[in-house]
């Protein structure tokens, strides 16, 4: 059995155990309506994680996408409050946030600034800017009447929630891009060895920039869904995306040994199902954070399992 298969089996066993536990504890857990609800919730984490997956694939870290998503959601709410329609508001905000993502990409890719610190910096700055739309207050005006709430409440063919449709569409496109197209190769080459990628004729800075733009865009889409579910423009809504998104990407890496679209989805699914189950069991939210964070750390350990085993062996040998 290959390494990947082993991790996959270990992971599926773990997931089955979680599902079984929740099913035994809550009779509501294994119902269609709960699963539709859970998938809606999943889509938010999953979309944000998918964007981050691109940045991790090019070997960088993005610590700004959750802050950026706050800016995008506030920009959207602002456009709606001053009378624009939902479609224009969403697209205009995405355009704004894409240019900010490009800024990240240029700073890290073109000027070679350190990714972590730079994105913490740009993220915090953009989060500060997001306060300009309303001074930090909720934006209610026009929100409920504008039709933006369809982004969360709407259903395709009367059954599939729009957030799930958006998630499936983005995952399909990303899968094509990262795993089926020639461009996907370049993302991985850049992330693996930027120097070798450059000498292979790949425009490294360009791929870094694209990854940061995608990360900012996808997190913003996730947060727009989240905000439209809440029925008001709230500035802090996106802040909570950071940890689950990182956790999802790393759970994926721990199974498939590299950041992948399908791995990220499985990671997001696991985290989301845990959050859903704990909510049904009325476990306080801070326990939830605790468990999700633990699974992040656990998966990082798993992802580096080879490194850790050699380290332990070395210790033993003295």
């Amino acid at each position: 059995m290959s390494e990947v298969n082993k991790s996959l089996v270990a992971f599926l066993t773990f997931l089955a155990a979680i599902l079984l536990m929740f099913t035994l504890q809550s009779e509501y857990f294994l119902t269609v309506s709960n699963f539709l609800q859970a998938f809606k919730h999943l889509s938010i984490t999953a979309i944000a994680a998918l964007g981050l997956c691109f940045v991790v694939a090019v070997g960088k870290a993005d610590m700004s996408f959750h802050f950026f998503s706050c800016f995008a959601a506030m920009a959207m709410s602002y456009f709606i409050s001053i009378g624009y329609g939902p479609v224009f508001s969403v697209l205009a905000s995405l355009l704004l946030i894409a240019s900010l993502g490009l800024l990240n990409g240029i700073l890290v890719g073109r000027f070679g600034l350190p990714d972590m610190v730079t994105t913490i910096g740009t993220g915090t700055a953009v989060f500060g800017l997001a306060y300009l739309f309303s001074g930090g207050r909720y934006i209610y005006r026009n929100f409920i009447d504008s039709g933006i709430m369809q982004l969360n409440d709407g259903k395709l063919f009367g059954t599939i929630p729009i957030p799930v449709v958006v998630m499936v569409a983005l995952y399909f496109l990303s899968w094509l891009l990262l795993h089926k197209s020639k461009y996907g190769r370049n993302f991985y080459a850049v992330g693996n060895k930027p120097l070798a990628a450059r000498f292979s004729g790949i425009k490294v800075a360009r791929y870094l920039a694209i990854a940061f733009v995608i990360s900012a865009l996808f997190a913003s889409i996730a947060n727009m869904v989240q905000v439209s579910a809440q029925g008001k423009g709230e500035i802090r809504a996106g802040v909570t995306l950071l940890m689950p998104a990182w956790a999802a990407v790393f759970v994926g890496i721990s199974i498939f040994k590299k950041p992948t679209v399908y791995g990220t989805f499985i990671g997001a699914f696991m985290i989301s199902i845990m959050q859903n189950g704990f909510t049904l069991l009325s476990v306080p939210f801070y326990y939830m954070d605790f468990v999700v964070a633990l699974s992040l750390i656990g998966s990082i350990i798993l992802a580096n399992f080879d490194v850790i085993t050699t380290w332990i062996n070395k210790k033993r040998r003295g």
């Binding site: 020639k182 190769r185 991985y188 080459a189 693996n192 070798a196 990628a197 000498f199 004729g201 590299k258």
Partner: peptide, 23 residues
């Protein structure tokens, strides 16, 4: 450092500088 992309296949590496050739 400059030659090959590690933990990828030989095919991945061989075709990397002319991906249009295989797509």
């Amino acid at each position: 450092a400059e030659g090959y992309i590690s933990d990828e296949s030989v095919a991945f590496n061989v075709t990397l500088s002319k991906l249009p050739g295989i797509s």
